[in-house]
Simulated assay, not measured.
Amino acid sequence: MLLVDDQQLVRSGFRLILSVEDDVEVVGEAPDGAAAVEAARALRPDVVLMDVQMPVMDGIEATRRIAAEDLAKVLVLTTFDRDDYVFDALSAGASGFLLKNSDAEHLVEAVRTVAAGHALLAPQVTRRVIAQMVAAGAAPAGGPAAEPVAQRSAPSSPASSPTPPAGDPRLALLTPRETEVLELVGEGLSNAEIAQRLFLGEATVKTHVSNLLAKLQLRDRVQAVVLAHRCGLVGPTA
């Protein structure tokens, strides 16, 4: 993996934590976003651990370039008090985010999760981002303004069919149930929480998530959250 942070001491700390793991190899470091992009092109790491605030090029732009060239999966470091960074990172193509105050165990597990191709999406942080965006009436970075979802005042019952949202023609490929699941993914719910909300088995929800990702040609759950907001499928609740 590649470590990106403008502070040498921070990079050394991450290297010390990760290098003792048998299944993790740190192949390089970079002090800013521009150097990170070049290092990713040269080294082709599986995962880039990316800070946000750096000189020359920030971590959001570096993430966008790395994701656009499919050079590596990016795990962005963030803090609770900068939720805007989280959504910007997800919109840029990050596979997940990690809180800077996480302990060593969570850091290692996060790296493994992203390396395995899974999105690392902490529901409690995701919901804060959603609440902030809804309150501001703003669209995700890089996307059009969200179109409102009409009369959405309560969770859909298992038998109901949600109104297909506007904003992306790919959504027409989804079944009514898959659209419901996408909406709840966009709200930051886990598979277990979606299963409880829709009275389904967790394995069934997992299948619906896999199917909708394939139909929408999305890389992971993170991209599904971004799409749900951009198309207006997720809106304010009463």
Score class of each variant (00 low, 15 high):
S95M: 12
R82Q: 12
S102K: 13
I66E: 05
D84A: 01
A72W: 12
F97K: 10
I60Q: 03
E109K: 15
V111S: 11
L77Q: 14
R41F: 09
A119K: 02
L120Q: 03
A116G: 15
V52C: 11
L43W: 03
T113S: 13
F80G: 02
F97P: 10
S91V: 10
A131D: 12
A119Q: 05
P45G: 07
A34D: 03
A34L: 08
R127T: 04
V52G: 10
Q53C: 03
A68D: 13
V86H: 03
T78Y: 08
D83V: 14
M133A: 14
L90K: 06
A89C: 07
Q132P: 00
A115R: 14
G137P: 13
A72D: 05
E29K: 09
E69K: 06
I66R: 07
S95F: 15
M54I: 06
M133Y: 09
E61P: 00
V125E: 02
G96A: 10
L77S: 06
V48I: 08
V52I: 15
M50K: 11
K100L: 12
A68P: 03
D32R: 07
V129I: 05
D83G: 00
L99N: 10
L71Q: 01
R65F: 00
N101Q: 13
F97H: 15
G28C: 10
V125A: 04
D51N: 11
R82T: 06
A34Y: 05
A62I: 03
V37I: 01
D46P: 08
R112W: 13
F97L: 14
P45Y: 05
A115F: 11
V134G: 06
